[in-house]
Write a protein that binds this DNA or RNA. Structure first.
Lengths: 329, 329
DNA sequence: GCAAAAATGTTAAACGTTTATCTTTTTTAG
DNA sequence: CTAAAAAAGATAAACGTTTAACATTTTTGC
């Protein structure tokens, strides 16, 4: 690998001049600058980030830790993150945890070791977040907040999204609403359920506990749950899965039972489903503002990196996108 | 940030002993080891990768450069890459180029600067590949090969995939086959078209040049092209888009024209479409072996990193997945 | 042609590790 | 209890940069 010394020698200048050109270009004459640039080009020189970091304590790298890059929501969110950061010359390290706390803690330690300038994390476990705090890694939580942990975050108002969606269903005449949720540990899960519960309460509709299913945000479990639900005598009129993946499970189950949406059963999804643009009927869903969620969190991160401390605690508003997967009753 | 010195002091051992524990654990007694580990835990110590790299010349990092993480094909491929590498304790840096040669060259320089142990790249431009060669970055091309460049690669036999698909269509009676392709620069594009052309030739069917559309792998262009095609008096009986994104465009066009698949028009896609698991009819498509493509390229990369040089030149076989989007004529 | 300003050079320390060599201390086996 | 082996320590160099302090050279403006 060619070093700054090689460049200096070949350009017949001192190492310090080369370094100055790299870090403070204004103070070197354009003649020398050109000469050095030319040599750099010839030798294919790129300064070693590692050596640089040691002195400057900056990596220009931001880590993104998330459960699943394949998940539609995280995927499109990531695209905005990537776009924004690449325009500002920050590098991204992407870590996929698969909702595995062990994988997550491994990654968290790794990025600590890498001394990234900051981390954006949609955590699976609280332990990872506590580790980040202890080890003084700069970070912003995304989507999943720990209320008792007093950290920076950007998330969606999951409560409102779910409340509004439920209200929409109720106004169309639905009372037997089935919920496919997680196990109640994840923040969005809790909030979404609370939103549902309170909307039901407001309209004085009793919640049938048999219609609340824990599917752990898993497609297959949603599929089985749906089959169970649809075989009941007292079956629900609508199913409300708390993420896109579970909605896929619901749709598959409906297809397998040769039923149709919304004639036989209505569906309302939290988040878009993959392939939503061509799937018919269009699935009514709560849409989180991925675009601004991505831009804002990255902007906040970059601000934190330059201005040091910053206070970022934001809930953004989701929007109910009306399709035609919900029937009026 | 706590350093190895802090650990040594607190554990009352020498820096060298701590380093030995980290790099050659067998030669330190378990009593000392435990003591040191305990202190590391307490102080949240993680060695600085940068400092380490300077001496050891290893980053344990592999860069993945690809055009679009949102593209179904690259996305699922990436998941396998990620899984395989994380199990083997390699870190991944993900770079999204958006098919922009400038963004790509920026990323290529970046990873050079980061001194990653290797790169896996589905290149957009030849310049990036030439840069990697010049700067002696270890790399394997993925999907997009440059025949004149004599590099390592793992790709699919695009020719065969397309040939077989075309033959399938012909045997079902199709003669007026419309092709939605790119502009003919990308390797897969060229090969896929050659496969189509030769299959047609074998069955002595003349290719109507009006049915060959350059849509640049773009959804909107595929949509417009499809509308044009379907309004012709001498319209095709089947449309064969060269990737999943263009297939989405085709499907949207068909939906907008209120036609149905395969009654009014048949479709055969190269690659899966997003949401393929719930979309009906099931789209007949050429499936690349994403799983093995991912594992194999990562395995090859890791071998290259440890054994130094390696020769990797592989074309894997795609498979035709029969759905019901192609009508017998 | 001269003084001031700008550009470049010289030297050296620092960043946090690893690693080699050599020395000293501790543990183990008989 | 002793000799050998194992473990730990001490010292120092190296990795590729940046940066500060100061010295020297070159350019600029008048």
């Amino acid at each position: 690998m060619t070093t700054i010394l090689d460049v200096a020698k070949k350009a017949k200048v001192s190492v310090v001049t080369v370094s100055r050109l790299l870090n403070n270009p204004d103070i070197v004459s354009s003649r020398t600058a050109n000469k050095i640039f030319q040599v750099m080009e010839q030798l294919n020189y790129q300064p070693s980030q590692a050596a640089r970091y040691l002195v400057q304590k900056k990596t220009n790298t931001i880590a993104v830790i998330m459960p699943d890059i394949k998940n539609t929501f995280f995927n499109s969110w990531f695209r905005f993150i990537e776009e924004y950061s690449s325009e500002r010359d920050f590098n991204l390290v992407l870590c996929n945890t698969d909702e595995d706390p062990l994988k997550e803690i491994k990654y968290v330690k790794l990025i600590h070791s890498q001394r990234v300038d900051g981390a954006i994390i949609a955590p699976t476990s609280k332990a990872s977040v506590e580790y980040l705090i202890k080890s003084k890694v700069r970070f912003i939580l995304f989507d999943r907040v720990f209320k008792d942990l007093n950290t920076n975050f950007i998330s969606t108002d999951h409560y409102k999204g779910s409340y509004d969606a439920t209200e929409y269903l109720i106004r169309l005449g639905h009372k037997k609403i089935a919920i496919l949720k997680g196990n109640g540990t994840l923040y969005p899960d809790v909030e979404r359920f609370a939103g549902f519960r309170n909307a039901m309460k407001k309209y004085n509709i009793k919640i049938d506990p048999d219609l609340i299913m824990n599917c752990e945000f898993n497609e297959d479990k949603a599929l089985s749950a749906t089959k169970l639900l649809l075989q009941r005598s007292d079956k629900p009129t609508v199913i409300f899965p708390f993420n896109g993946l579970m909605s896929i499970g619901v749709i598959k189950a409906v297809q397998q039972l040769k039923l149709s949406i919304p004639e036989d059963i209505s569906i309302l999804s939290f988040d878009e489903i993959p392939g939503s643009d061509i799937f018919r009927p269009e699935i009514t869903h709560v849409m989180q503002p991925v675009n601004t969620l991505g831009k804002d969190i990255m902007a906040a991160m970059i601000r934190m990196i330059s201005n040091s401390s910053q206070h970022v605690r934001v809930f953004q508003n989701p929007e109910l996108i009306i399709g035609n997967s919900v029937k009026k009753i």
